[in-house]
């Protein structure tokens, strides 16, 4: 219940109508959207029961490792009702052709693989919010100071997922495990996204806001 209540509001992409359609415009729109979502995701993290009890340093380490997984999982969940399209925002839905034009086809394909996996399972909102919190707590940062405290957070979230599945999906005792088994694909997809946006940053043709840049740099 607390995780459902902590879910951030929807964000609009608002592509700049003054810019002509181009790969730069698409990437500028996505980077701006990501930056605004990141601000919301940081305040979301603070509402995860137990997260704010971690040291500030460990909170930072978890977010620096998992920020892109959180963004990707949110896009994947939003895209569940869409056919082969990614719903980056209600006003920004991207098909393969548009992704290709923006140089994002590989990433688009990878995120859709994740969407299909969740669609097959009919991922529910309750499972999505819990899995997202698990991805954050389980981000495998190499800089964690209080490993036991982070383990405690992982255990509490894992327990919440098991409880939910026990009550709502007693017909499939392996459902929680199946959900956890999607996390490697999420990690892989997120790493792809970070690499791609790092190379866009190197090119220097797309304006990026400071928080997005700061977190991209944390992953280099």
């Amino acid at each position: 219940t607390l995780l459902l209540g902590a879910e951030p509001e929807k964000v609009c992409a608002m592509p700049d109508p003054a810019l002509p359609d181009s790969d730069i415009k698409a990437l500028t729109t996505l980077c701006d959207l990501a930056d605004r979502e990141l601000v919301l995701n940081i305040s979301w993290a603070k509402h995860i029961p137990g997260f704010s009890s971690l040291s500030l340093s460990d909170q930072m380490s978890l977010l620096q490792s998992a920020w892109m997984e959180i963004l990707v999982l949110r896009v994947a969940f939003r895209s569940l009702p869409c056919d082969d399209r990614l719903l980056f925002a209600d006003d920004y839905i991207m098909d393969a052709e548009q992704a290709k034009c923006a140089g994002l086809l590989e990433l688009h394909t990878a995120i859709l693989q994740l969407v299909r996996r969740y669609r097959c399972m009919s991922l529910e909102r309750e499972e999505f919010v819990t899995l997202k919190a698990i991805a954050l707590a389980n981000s495998d940062s190499m800089h964690i100071e209080d490993v036991e405290a982070v383990q405690g957070l992982q255990d509490a979230l894992h327990e919440a997922l098991l409880d939910y599945e026990c009550v709502h999906h007693s017909e499939d005792p392996r459902r929680a495990g199946k959900l956890i088994m999607t996390l490697p694909l999420l990690r892989q997809t997120s790493a792809k996204a970070v690499r791609h946006f790092c190379s866009i940053k190197q090119d220097g043709r797309v304006p990026m806001h400071k928080l997005f840049l700061e977190l991209l740099e944390a992953n280099i």
Binding site: S43, K46, S57, Q59, Q64, L211
Partner: peptide
């Protein structure tokens, strides 16, 4: 970590 000023500030803000 000193470089991550915005993340640090956002985490320290209440809300």
């Amino acid at each position: 970590k000193e470089k991550h000023k915005i993340l640090h500030r956002l985490l320290q803000n209440s809300s």
